[in-house]
Amino acid sequence: MKGSRAAASVAVLSAAFRAFYDLHHASYLAYTAARLPADEVPVAVSHTFGLVAANWTTAVARPSPAAYAWNLHASYVAGRTGTRTSQKDDVALMHDDLHLPVDRIATLTGKETATVTALLSAAHR
């Protein structure tokens, strides 16, 4: 009984992680491609999703698993470029260059839509 309960928990976590991955993967690739050389893009994105998968229970215990994952990814990319961009620069890149709508950026980064709108407004000043 205990083993089947554990297997069911893993299946639920796996399904939840897979949904998270499916929702965010393409946008992570696009963002990373804008910041890193092409040969580093799949490595960086795989690294992030590997960390998130390995720490999935920690991620889902956070108020925003998306923010947790995004912060891991942004930090990794910054380490690879040697430059930490500001939140407003990242939002502007995603909106202006990658053509992501504000609500998609909010979902991706785990921020409130109003926060993304404010960051975008600040970036355009």
Rank of each mutant, 00 (worst) to 15 (best):
T107Y: 00
S75E: 09
V102G: 07
K111S: 09
T115M: 07
R62C: 12
S75L: 10
H124K: 14
S4C: 06
A33P: 11
A114Y: 00
A33C: 05
A67L: 10
L120S: 07
A61R: 14
A16Y: 02
H47F: 13
D39F: 14
F49T: 00
A123E: 07
D103C: 07
R35S: 12
G3Q: 10
F20A: 11
N71S: 14
F20S: 03
T107K: 04
H24Y: 08
T107L: 04
R125I: 05
G110R: 02
T113F: 03
L93S: 03
V77I: 08
P65S: 07
A123C: 03
V41R: 09
F17Y: 15
H24D: 06
T85Y: 00
A16T: 13
L51G: 12
Y76E: 00
D103Q: 06
T81K: 04
L120P: 09
T48E: 09
A67E: 07
A30Q: 12
M94D: 00
A15D: 15
G3N: 11
S4H: 15
M1E: 13
A16P: 06
D96C: 03
S121R: 15
T117R: 15
A8S: 13
S86K: 03
A54T: 12
Y21M: 06
H99P: 00
S9D: 14
V102W: 07
P63I: 06
T115E: 05
T81C: 04
D97V: 02
T32D: 01
H47G: 09
V43T: 14
V116Y: 01
A106H: 05
L29K: 01
M94L: 15
A33G: 14
A15Y: 15
T117V: 11
T115L: 04
Y31S: 11
L108M: 06
T32Q: 08
G110P: 00
V77G: 01
P42A: 10
S27A: 15
A11C: 11
N71V: 05
V41Q: 12
S14F: 08
P42L: 12
E112T: 03
A66L: 05
V43A: 09
T83A: 07
A74M: 02
T115A: 10
E40T: 02
A8W: 05
A92V: 07
I105C: 02
Y68S: 01
A26S: 15
R18C: 12
S27P: 05
S86I: 00
D22P: 07
T48Q: 06
H47K: 14
H25D: 03
F17C: 11
Y28I: 00
A38S: 15
